[in-house]
Write a protein that binds this DNA or RNA. Sequence first.
DNA 1: TTATGGATTAGCT
DNA 2: GCTAATCCATAAA
Length: 228
Amino acid sequence: MPKPPGQAPAIRPVGRAFFARGPRRVARELLGKILVRDGEGMRLAARIVEVEAYLGENDPAAHAWAGNTPRTSVLFGPPGFAYVYFIYGNHYCLNVSCEREGKTGSGVLFRALEPLQGVDEMARARGLPMPTGGNARTTELRKLTSGPGRLAEAFGITRRRDNGCDLTSARSGLWIGDDGFRAARIEITPRIGITKAAERPLRYILAENTFVSGRRNAGKKVENSRQC
DNA sequence: TTATGGATTAGCT
DNA sequence: GCTAATCCATAAA
């Protein structure tokens, strides 16, 4: 595969300490980081543009609310590991565990990405036509990874394959990296698609990024923020 | 053993 | 805007 033109910045794995903090802090600072899938001579990479924080046992919307079960045990383990669950009979969703082991079972849900590398592979995984050039390209790219189920499908993420995977190690097939990108502006809104504790502002998005998901709650901006 | 409902998506009206 | 598709973890029995 030819290298992309120009100098793509190196992607460095994000360390364990980054995730050993509260889920709101982790969610906010994950914006602009990169999700990477390495496999059979190819790499998928996409920028994180939308996430949601789930606070653990005190959050009725969180899977960890019911406590530590076989399904949710990764959330209660050490930080920086993948919690993958299956939903509505059709879709997988990816989370990363937060806070040190023994705390509260919190995590961050990945809701939307902006494709950077491996676009054709993502389209194939999604069962969609290869994106073209031209004006339609952004629309076509959006269909690849704007939504939690979509991005999981584009990256080939399944519970069997990826649950419990260490997202801080580039030797994992799936990991989180930093290429130096810094979010210009972040918006915080209510979370999407939940029925319990739906009003709490725990959804973090890159402002003005066209790859964020959801037409529904998306407009209700709660806060702008420049600092982290 | 059976019942229930969900952190979604795509397709149709 | 509305809803079917479709599986699994969990709770109830």
